[in-house]
Design a protein around this nucleic acid. Structure first.
Length: 462
RNA sequence: GGGGCCGUAGUGAACCGGUCAUCACGUCUCCCUGUCACGGAGAAGAUAGCGGGUUCGAUUCCCGUCGGCCCCGCCA
């Protein structure tokens, strides 16, 4: 063993943020070079690891640098370190003099005086500048270099928020007593809703990619009573928009022995719980993105008819003949809710039965309309759901009225044949909530590796 | 499916019917012991997406094509 390397091999790694607690001690940190500021005889490096960044001071003639297996050599002015190089740096944690404190970073009161720098991996020249606060790239460039752009702190933080959404959803669903389930994405039945589906070759026969975990979560209600799942959904809609992906992530809940009003309580409860967790865990990210605190006032509930009357009365647009809200209606309703109820949410109920999938329960008082609901958040629908038809005959009738073939849904129908309690559920679009929570311009920014008509990681040839 | 807009160094943008196509960041060389999006001096890097047309002359105007972005519809 080379004597000089000994310390470095046995020394445990310290996370950048934890250096705050190790002032005066010699530590080893590991991470990526984010930026370098070269002052000739003194060089500053911002080194980033999973806990954040820290400033490293490299003084000429003091620090040594080496590649793995290479002899250490002392620096004489020049230093071959570049952004995204992976380094392990041993050095002393020093408190910065008062006038040199950087209040903008959590490690701004300290810095590391490098003694030894080991370069674990050299990075190629970057195609763009990664050192800025924002990564000012056009969307195609952002996605063409996805494995690199995701490393940028501001881009990465989108997915920290997304992780918090997932965690918040899991927590909220578990608190309701839901069991987590994993459901298939290869399915036999062609379609359940209006969306186009992907047809796949399945050993010479046809199968499809699931457009929703809907049918499976329903089948599992008689098993667990309450279930939730985080599932991929595939839609082959030939549309290219700011808010559609061909592969998306849905967060779904389905609850037995629950009827309409109670379901509304559950869905609003889950949404609020989930977003409160995100605010708690990612408050700093939300403020960096310039996002206002979420207004958690009491959530107004309006039927579609009531909402449309309100739009006419408050905003002067007569959309009473429409089967759904327009995008502008959703924006206006949320603005109204925020002003009148101090809530960023609005629940809209009773959409026309004809506009909803076959499993949606028509309102017994007025079967033209259904026991369905959408949750609007800051001007956009982020969740939808309904009470379901739980009677076998009624379900068969509903399918036939939509020219669906019950033969294709045998397994699903079994669940109803053998005893299904009153039930319902709801579903959130993960990428869509992420996008709107952070006010991103395009949903592709809210997916690690977005799939759309023109891209599956790389651009597809036409 | 309908409509609008855009293609200029590695990246992001600007200008212009007429001499070397401009700027910022990045890259390279040099200077700098206190920067934190460091600073300073210099250099390299673009046949202006492609094809055609109008014109004495096109990166600029027009048409086509390919690529991209956005809005509406569909949809979650």
């Amino acid at each position: 063993m080379i004597a000089g390397c000994y310390d470095q091999f046995i020394m445990e790694r310290t996370l950048n943020l934890d250096c705050n607690k190790k002032i005066g001690e010699t530590v080893k940190i590991c991470g990526w070079v984010l930026t370098r500021r070269d002052h000739g005889k003194i060089l500053f490096l911002d080194v980033l690891d999973r806990s954040g960044l820290i400033q490293v001071v490299v003084s000429s003639g003091v620090a040594s640098v080496h590649l793995p297996g290479e002899q250490r050599r002392h620096l004489e002015g020049e230093i071959d370190l570049h952004p995204q190089d992976v380094v392990c740096i041993t050095g002393k944690v020093n408190k910065r003099p008062q006038h040199l404190v950087n209040k903008n970073i959590p490690t701004g009161e300290i810095e590391i005086s490098a003694e030894s720098i080991e370069i674990l991996s050299k990075a190629a020249e970057l195609p763009f500048d990664m050192g800025g606060k924002d990564l000012n790239l056009q969307l195609p460039t952002l996605l063409d270099y996805r494995s690199l752009t995701l490393r940028h702190p501001k881009v990465k933080s989108i997915f920290k928020v997304q992780a918090a959404l997932l965690e918040g959803f899991r927590k909220a669903a578990k608190e309701l007593g839901c069991t987590e389930i994993v459901v298939p994405t290869v399915v036999a039945g062609a379609t359940e809703g209006g969306a186009e589906v992907f047809k796949i070759d399945y050993f010479g026969r046809s199968a499809y990619l699931s457009q929703s975990p809907q049918l499976y979560k329903q089948m599992l209600v008689p098993v667990f009573e309450r279930v939730f799942t985080i599932a991929k959904a595939y839609r082959a809609e030939p549309s290219v928009t700011t808010r559609h992906l061909t592969e998306s992530t849905q967060m779904d809940v389905e609850i037995g022995f629950a009827e309409f009003e109670e379901l509304l309580d559950y869905l609003e409860g889950v949404a609020v719980r989930m977003l409160k967790i995100v605010e708690d865990e990612c408050g700093d990210i939300l403020s960096e993105y310039g996002i206002e605190k979420i207004a958690f006032g009491s959530i107004p509930r309006l039927s579609l008819k009531e909402a449309q009357e309100l739009i006419l009365k408050e905003f002067g647009r007569d959309n009473r003949k429409e089967k759904d809200l327009t995008p502008q209606d959703e924006i206006d309703l949320c603005q109204w809710s925020k002003e009148k109820h101090k809530s960023d949410f609005v629940t809209i109920t009773h959409f026309p039965t004809s506009a909803k999938p076959f499993y949606t329960m028509p309102d017994p008082k007025d079967p033209e309309y259904s026991l369905s609901y959408d949750l609007l958040f800051r001007g956009v629908e982020v969740m939808s759901g309904s009470q379901r038809i739980n009677n076998y005959e009624q379900l068969m009738t509903s399918m036939k009225s939509r020219s669906m073939n019950p033969e294709s849904f045998q397994m699903y129908l079994q669940a109803f044949m053998f005893g299904m309690p009153p039930e319902g559920g709801f579903s959130f679009g993960l990428e869509r909530i992420t996008m709107h929570l952070l006010n991103l311009a395009n949903i592709r920014e809210a997916s690690l590796f977005p799939r759309d008509m023109e891209r599956v990681d790389i651009r597809l040839n036409k």
